[in-house]
């Protein structure tokens, strides 16, 4: 009986759907306005992820205000959404379409191949070097910024032990690990770096447990490149003595999560990159088919201005920074 009831009810679905077509079928799609329009698709992190998606959106909003381009952003709910979301913008004839995050490394070439008249940009991937002629790949020297974070940690640690929490074992996160470890070693050869991975980007409880184990094991400074997992690091460090235990944030200035305990944050200026590239595209000076790599030199990565690093240590960080910019030090990326 109940079976039939439910089954019958479902027949209704198709009816309603058919009705719906009648009601809404003729609605014209919204199209882009203005001379130059930009679309931005986030990965599954969403627009306000307090990470690179949010930063990218800040750049987009700056472009809207400063150089008067029409902008629109769209969140992706699943990895499968990347292609349709990019396609939607392409069909709206938007001039430049962003895919934010390395997860777009298959979707961007696919859609770019389909819509040859649109320009595309991807953040955090060089597409394995095979960049189509209507795509620009924007990458960051995360290892350089992480190196400076490592120098700050190596010079500040009292226990000669620091920690690193990675999100998932992937080449992108390894860049952060490699740069940080190299920085610590350069600044303080006696210091050791304990590296752990959460195999997650969202489990804050895991982040807190890992941070607890690292601090209990003797580390006094922990850096993370682990998205939401890193929130747990700040929760843990906040429960400890200020001035003795430190956390280092990533992507954006994270000091608000634990103001007294945040040594500094490694900032990745996705906003600057999105703005610059968008501006170039509007002015017609953008070189397509290439990789644009933002490092310390271009202020694409660096440490946050808001920091608790002591002035002496800061001076040394600055020295290392100049050496990297001049090319005297090459920072490993894996």
């Amino acid at each position: 009986m109940q079976m039939k009831r439910l089954l019958g009810s479902l027949v209704a679905v198709s009816l309603v759907a058919t009705l719906a077509v009648g009601c809404g079928g003729n609605k014209s799609k919204e199209t882009a306005k203005g001379d130059f329009s930009v679309g931005l698709v986030t990965d599954t992190g969403g627009l306000n992820d307090e990470s690179f998606n949010q930063s990218a959106n800040m750049g987009l909003q700056k472009a809207k205000n400063d150089i008067k381009v029409d902008v629109k952003a769209q969140e992706s709910k699943k990895d499968d959404d990347y292609v349709p979301n990019l396609t939607r913008f392409a069909k709206d004839k938007r001039n430049l379409i962003w895919g934010v995050g390395f997860k777009f490394d298959k979707a961007i070439p696919d859609v770019a191949g389909e819509f040859k008249d649109s320009k595309f940009a991807i953040v955090d991937s060089n597409l394995g070097g095979k960049i189509p002629s209507n795509v620009v790949a924007v990458t960051f020297k995360d290892e350089e910024g992480s190196f400076l974070a490592g120098v700050a940690a190596g010079k500040t640690t009292k226990t000669n032990q620091v920690g690193f929490i990675g999100g998932m074992s992937s080449p992108l996160i390894k860049k952060f690990e490699a740069g940080f470890t190299a920085g610590v070693k350069q600044a303080n050869p006696k210091a050791t770096v304990k590296v752990v991975y959460a195999e997650s980007f969202s489990d804050a409880t895991k982040g807190r447990s890992l941070a607890k184990s690292l601090y209990d094991g003797g580390a006094d400074i922990v850096y993370h490149a682990a998205g939401g997992v890193g929130k747990g690091l700040f929760d843990e460090v906040k429960s400890r003595e200020a001035g003795k235990y430190w956390a280092i944030g990533v992507d954006m200035d994270q000091s608000r999560l634990a103001p007294e305990h945040t040594l500094t944050s490694m900032i990745k200026r996705v906003d600057v990159a999105v703005f610059e590239i968008t501006k170039q595209a509007k002015e017609g000076t953008l070189k397509l088919g290439t990789e644009v790599n933002f490092g310390l030199k271009d202020e694409g990565v660096g440490l946050s201005k808001n920091s608790k690093i002591s002035p002496e240590v800061m001076k040394q960080v600055e020295e290392f920074k100049q050496k990297i910019i001049k090319g005297e030090i090459t920072v490993p990326s894996k």
Binding site: S209, L210, S213, G217
Partner: peptide, 23 residues
């Protein structure tokens, strides 16, 4: 069990077992 898999990493078990497997 979760605690073991996490502190295992701090002990350096990841030298022998990949962290995905430990997880």
């Amino acid at each position: 069990s979760v605690a073991l898999s996490l502190t295992g990493q701090v002990w350096g078990l990841t030298e022998y077992v990949p962290s995905e497997i430990l997880t």
